[in-house]
Design a protein around this nucleic acid. Structure first.
Lengths: 342, 342
DNA sequence: TTACTTTCGGAAAGCGTTTTCGGAATATCA
DNA sequence: TGATATTCCGAAAACGCTTTCCGAAAGTAA
């Protein structure tokens, strides 16, 4: 391994360099490059040529310093794997336009101290706004009132009702799952889901129950089967149901992992999916949903949309007022072979 | 949803404000806050008090403008799920110190155009360095020579040997897997892995074969079973082996997903893991490895370390020269119950 | 030609820092 | 007490850019 000077050493060209080469003042050069008025076509062309020659790239920092805007937003997450933050980041990137706004990603790793630390850093970098992504979809402490920049909470709402939060519409998602299954002719539907302390679990169950009631259908197994967000729980809950000779022709699982456990257990009992029992999951975690046997129908929380909306709300807040309260973002059902035979 | 002015409106305090309140010049205020010399203890205390009173937070942009360093590095990734980039980002954050360096994350989504776009944006933001993370562990096009900042390629090496790349040591990882299995007394080991066009697949196989040879053991099934990085392939390859009455007491799988398929197929044939057949995976993708039945021993690529080393190499390059070539980062074996009975 | 617009280009201020350098005040030494 | 060394503090330049404002030049109308 040699050890040479790899990156070009000379500092990048400045506006001053461009102006000098074009034989104009930096004021004129600035106007020419930014399409401002009061520059003749010929001078503009000369400046542009000089800029191209020098591979001039404007210093966004300096620009931000005078504009009072940095074109950066902070994404403060606690999501250790990026499962949530990356899609949200991409949505935000799209909405802002990747060329005008960049995202500073900070992972607090679930540590409040670290979160405060990152917050201070982001503020001192003068980000234009902040998106806070929680690890679980339940109210989390606000990062503070009266911050110098607008803040949007995504996925996990802020506990402070004066903050603006964006969350998935889990109630409607629950209804969608039932609607899908009944639309396929299923009548005896069980709901196996995760940790009951998760608001999302409660909401999805609530939606499912409401939709069942609206259609005059009972919930198979008589109650919602809360447990853990694991395959193991999906398996064991399913076995319990079958052991009790509960007749089921569909299962609405609270997560894709649970759904896989459910399918596993059904297979072990010789039941075929979706012929005998249709199964739908939640999260649409591609890697799980598509590697399942059969591929898993699932409900997608539209995280990119969440990010996109977060960006839009922030953008609106830049020149105006930010709303408050909790905004529900609709989910989307992705049908695959675990409910609809290929 | 009300629509009020949520974030504090007044612009943040500047050094000028602090100086004025403390009754000193901005020069003195700056020195006091930065612990420079030539400031008496009492004035320093006064300045600090003023700063605290105003909740002063220095403008990192302005600081960067004069220092010629922004304290930001760009992380240019193509990793759609964050599976790679987030751990690498966290490692880099740790190495730099989250308070002195922030990471701008840009996802190119596998699109060269978008990558170029992001690159330009990052450069115009004057990042101090760049980490490029590829989606698959094979040589990828260099993002360019003679960039104004040092660049380190992580996970996927650059095709240009003059660039500095950091990759996992797949060959040694292959040896480690075999070493682990033979250490447990296994003698007939098969290797089922993914797409043979992946250099990583070849390297792991090479390491495994070398280690087997060193121990005078044959490869069960006579050849490496290349296929796809899927559960389905793991299942079908295993079935094929069993159908051929190949005696195996261990399988080294090329990924955790393949490993799960292998375990599935073994169970279907009435074989118990690890009693009859030990199985080890690769990637140590927590969610897969731990939700497997039994939990999966696996090889972790130490992505955080990759990020950490990338950060260290960049930091070294800031004041000095950057190396070139491909640096191998060792992997780590994480034993769980799929090889070692609980 | 004179008077008035319109169009261009540049000087300079300012964004919020850090840092150099010179001057004033205080302390140290003969 | 006068000369010299120390210690503090502030004025000002610099970082790279945008923008306001003013003057010069050129065009238009009478």
């Amino acid at each position: 391994m040699t050890s040479t000077e790899r990156h070009a050493t000379g500092r990048p060209a400045t506006l001053h360099d461009v102006a000098r080469l074009a034989g104009v003042s930096i004021a004129t050069a600035s106007k020419a490059l930014n399409g401002r008025k009061h520059v003749s076509a010929t001078t503009r062309a000369e400046v542009l040529e000089a800029a191209a020659l020098l591979a001039y790239s404007p210093n966004t920092l300096a620009r931000g310093l005078v504009a009072g805007r940095t074109g950066m937003v902070g994404l403060l997450t606690s999501d250790l794997e990026g499962r949530l933050s990356i899609p949200i980041l991409m949505g935000a990137e799209d909405a802002f336009g990747a060329d005008r706004t960049s995202v500073l990603l900070c992972d607090a790793r679930g540590d409040a101290i670290r979160e405060g630390h990152h917050l201070r850093t982001l503020l001192s970098r003068r980000v234009d706004g902040l998106i806070v992504v929680g690890a679980r979809p339940d109210p989390r402490p606000s990062i503070g009132r009266d911050l110098p920049v607008p803040v949007v909470y995504a996925y996990a709402p802020s506990a402070d009702p004066d903050d603006l939060s964006l969350v998935s519409d889990n109630v409607t998602a629950g209804r969608m799952a039932i609607e899908h299954l009944t639309g396929l002719g299923r009548r005896t539907i069980a709901h196996i889901t995760g940790d009951p302390t998760y608001g999302a679990a409660q909401d999805r169950a609530k939606g499912a129950l409401a939709e069942l009631a609206a259609r005059g259908l009972p919930l198979a197994g008589d109650r919602v089967h809360f447990g853990a967000w694991t395959e193991a729980w999906g398996r064991s809950a399913t076995r319990t149901l079958l052991a009790q000779h509960v007749a089921i022709d569909a299962v609405f699982a609270g997560s894709d992992q649970i759904a896989r456990g459910v399918i596993d257990a059904l297979h072990e009992e010789g039941l075929e999916v979706p012929r005998d029992v249709a199964v739908i999951g939640f999260d649409n975690w591609e890697i799980f949903a598509t590697s399942s046997r059969p591929p898993l129908s699932s409900i997608d929380m539209n995280l990119e949309t969440l990010g996109r909306v977060a960006a839009e709300r922030l953008a609106a807040a830049f020149d105006g007022a930010l709303g408050s309260g909790v905004e529900q973002i609709p989910c989307r059902l992705v049908p695959r072979e675990s409910t609809v035979a290929a």
